[in-house]
Design a protein around this nucleic acid. Structure first.
Lengths: 197, 197
DNA sequence: ACTGTCATGTAAAACGTTACATGATTCT
DNA sequence: AGAATCATGTAACGTTTTACATGACAGT
């Protein structure tokens, strides 16, 4: 159900085609809510069916058309209702921690390579988050720029600060994951002996 | 697919009935991998069908019987293969952060109450994690005690330290969530004015 | 002419949630 | 006798993943 609101949030910055959405998605909302193309297109159709969106056909080349989605009043109302409704709790479900708790069953090499994989993934993710945060602060993030253009300047700080607040939390999470992986690698060295060269 | 391995991990401590599993689950593995009863029972049946478990009927009262599940050699092999296999990455999907990024759309009261809800949830969860961590350190955690009894004493430290390592990571996560919610509440006060009394 | 990007999906399977359903046993 | 716990699910629905599928357009 959150996917629907993630899409409404994105379309709040400007009308977009499904393709635009799926590209912008990966550069912004996906940092908090991942979804692949194959989930986005059907959901857009359902949202139009439910009256939250309206699509206007836009010419594309000599023959083709593409669908540009616009949020309807009902869509806006649904989004406002969602944002004011109580939080759904996130279920704990993390393969990395599940494995970590039973790492005594693993080979030392496999344990090390998993912790390194975790470390590398979160290091790269941290870098992405920090760069994205910076584009929010300096207001060069493309979706944010479109969004700000639709609101009066006295609202700009509120809009930016909430997004930066969310990213600050994500950045802290990423840093914690990197630090945890480091401690894990040290633990494996301590318990299983130094790594083979 | 991880549910299957979470169940194998638990059954590694001792044979149990589905009911025992679903109770123990919520006190240990559920901290990293949540699952309700209605998912556990069917999965146990599938695991038996796939040869990972064997159930032995145990008398229960004058008429009843219950099924006690035992891990088979195939189950043990599957678990070892899983623990040594590369990590599946966790998809980002967190309603709290999705909402936080668009909190400019929310009423100040709703924003505050959501952040407080997040704060309270993670404070309670942090307390549970810390208490569970302590029962691991002092080895009074019931499932851990059963597990240790099945391994030679020279393995006990390895077994305990990996579990404590996992909980340390979870505890850091929970602390970060509490701190983030606090910063969020301060931000709402700053941007929307002090709360109504 | 070819390559990459734009554009839009479908289909099947796996996974997870929610609500319901039922009866025996043990404890007080 | 009644309440709590033990025991085991099913059914319906919704969400997510994975893999596949197709073709037009734009730039070189």
């Amino acid at each position: 159900m959150s996917l629907r609101f993630a899409l409404l949030a994105l379309l709040g910055s400007r009308p977009m085609t499904g393709y635009d959405l799926s590209k912008q998605f990966s550069q912004s909302v996906a940092h908090v809510w991942h979804a692949p193309d194959s989930q986005i297109y059907p959901e857009l159709n359902r949202m139009e069916r439910d009256g939250l969106l309206e699509s206007v056909p836009v010419a594309w080349g000599p023959k083709g058309t593409k669908k540009e989605y616009h949020v309807t009043d009902a869509g806006l109302a649904a989004f406002r209702e969602w944002i004011n409704s109580p939080l759904e709790i996130r279920r704990q479900r993390d393969p990395a921690y599940l494995k970590a708790a039973y790492l005594e069953w693993a080979d030392a090499d496999a344990a090390r390579s998993q912790l390194r994989q975790h470390h590398d993934y979160w290091t790269a993710h941290l870098d992405l988050l920090e760069r994205t945060r910076q584009t929010l602060v300096d207001r060069t993030h493309p979706t944010l720029a479109h969004r700000l253009a639709r609101h009066s300047p006295d609202q700009h700080e509120r809009i930016v600060r909430y997004k930066v607040f969310a990213y600050d939390g994500l950045i802290d999470q990423a840093r914690a994951e990197v630090a945890w992986a480091d401690r894990g690698l040290a633990l494996v060295d301590e318990l299983e002996g130094a790594p083979a060269p």
